[in-house]
Amino acid sequence: MKKLLSEFTKGIVKENPTFVLMLGLCPTLAVSVTVINGIGMGIAATFVLLSANIIISLLKNIIPARVRIPCFIVVIATFVTIVEMAMKAYSPALNRALGIYVPLIVVNCIVLGRAEAFAQKASVGRAILDGLGMGLGFTLALILICAIREFLGAGTLMNYSLIKGFEPARVFGMPSGALLVIGLLVGLFNVLKNRKG
């Protein structure tokens, strides 16, 4: 039981996809401007991750090893396209904010990485836990980065302005600010990890 639980929790801190595995940094850098974006991207990626993990774990005995990568990509691309169509139909504003980065979840290395490194060898149950945990870890990391960037770069959180008279530091709304924030957070993660270990 405890072991099963750890399949879920490992993605949140110990093997956090963003800060520890350093996967999927491209969408993280690009969309982490506002918290809303971060939540939307996180949910979309979690859905794809979970669905792809389930299907790939189910098909693990059918897919031949030598054509596994194209098979994985087809499965992942299908779910990404479903997410994109659903988003366009039900939340066009979010779709516009996330732009090209929704279709690009296909090449988000977290998804293919988990399929390759985990789901193709694991039981469905463990694959579900892994997908959920990794998705949650990615979402939380995104929200953290987004919150810092939105607050410093625009002076707001979830589009509510917090402090009157705070002059936002625009650089945090720009790509260079994303690199700065992620770099510092990865550094902080390493410091905390080294202190424990």
Partner: peptide
């Protein structure tokens, strides 16, 4: 450079 990128107006 940081200040320029953050508060260009000021």
């Amino acid at each position: 450079a940081f200040l320029m990128a953050c508060w260009p107006k000021l």
